[in-house]
Design a protein around this nucleic acid. Structure first.
Lengths: 209, 209
DNA sequence: GATCGTACATAACACTTGTTATGTACGATC
DNA sequence: GATCGTACATAACAAGTGTTATGTACGATC
């Protein structure tokens, strides 16, 4: 008899297939059969691990969010603006995996707007994301690395807006937004809010790559 | 025999129903029957005016974009930062109609990412939007209303990112982002890029309402 | 080694989908 | 006023959907 962990591991395998299908075919292309063939299995496997489609989607999305959060938490960051920059960089579609995940999130937004339960979950995730960004902004403001003209909560909302809006533009026009430009745009954005004089040079070092 | 204009007018009626269905139920809820009942008609009407679903979606999305552009073009704007602010304000979900249209756009993004034809169209619309914002940014920089540290194209991309990212957050959490806060966030954002000193007060007057 | 529960595959179900065909009211044309 | 094309409604169709039922291989348990 397989251990309990195997069961959960299988559910995560299915969830990852959901991510890929969602990223490739959008929410309207997310069918149990598509998920099954994505895994090279049958729909029987999917229905064996999830009671219905709604539960499958809920689990897959929640898992995606948990993975993202875990990855962000793991990195020991220097506080303040550097940490904020790292947290935002972490979201951008700078590599193939990040592209897939962002495609899945954007594809999910449309469905979440229409379904009350998914909507609530997504709103909570947004609030959670902002709450995790907030201490970095506060610390950056305390250090004078970020302008204090705007309130911390507002600055967080602005930074989150910029980042996700950039994600959408990147996904639709990847050739116009290669990783280097994404990073440079983020730095220009942060530059705008880095204290009094807006043009005193970059406050954060360029990414090594 | 009805005039040619009636035929086109009917196609626009159908398109508007598509917008509402898309905003309410997302792309996966966009069915010919849903569109028909949204109009209080039968699917026969829809199929009479459009050869297939793909053509219907294409037409509806293109019409939505044309309407938006026409509205933006009509307003005679003062040049520079004021014009940029007005153009961005025009996109935000400040009223019920704008909320509906933005919900439809976000719902459409997911489908556009998955379908090559729709993807191309959406990428073109983004490029077009940036091209229309560009002269305002250039003029604002020339006047010294906007920081010239960042390139004009980059500033446009940053402004577009911020605006659409804010749209998404507003749609998911409207109570946290009432119209006044949306406007104040936009002004804070623009403030960050308004020349040397970042905190010399608002560069653009608050909206009257 | 018989029993049994788990982990699937396979198949069938009712339902919804886009599409197509058919029917029909009705104003314009001769 | 007969004819005709337009503007739909109604209905039928095959294909695809989520869900449920059934079959079955197989390692663990006694």
């Amino acid at each position: 008899m397989p251990a309990r962990g195997d069961h959960d591991a299988r559910r995560e395998d299915v969830s990852e297939a959901v991510w890929r299908v969602l990223a490739a075919h959008g929410f309207s292309g997310l069918t149990l059969r598509a998920v099954a063939t994505e895994m090279g299995a049958s729909t029987g496997l999917v229905t064996h691990y999830f009671p219905n489609k709604k539960a499958l989607v809920r689990y897959a999305v929640r898992l995606a969010d948990e993975r993202t959060q875990a990855r962000a938490r793991r990195r020991p960051e220097r506080p303040g603006l550097v940490a904020l920059r790292a947290a935002l960089l972490d979201v951008l579609p700078l590599g193939p995996d990040a592209v897939t995940m962002n495609r899945m999130w954007v594809g999910f937004w449309g469905a979440a707007l229409a379904d009350p339960a998914l909507h609530e979950g997504e709103a909570a995730r947004y609030a959670n994301w902002r709450a995790r960004l907030l201490p970095h902004v506060v610390e950056a403001q305390r250090r004078g690395e970020l302008d204090s003209a705007a309130g911390s909560e507002d600055l967080v909302a602005i930074a989150a807006s910029f980042t996700h809006g950039l994600v959408v533009q990147v996904l639709f026009d990847p050739e116009n937004f290669p990783p280097e430009r994404q990073i440079s745009l983020l730095d220009s954005f942060l530059d705008g809010f880095s204290g009094g004089a807006g043009s005193h040079g970059r406050v954060a070092p360029r990414a090594p790559r």
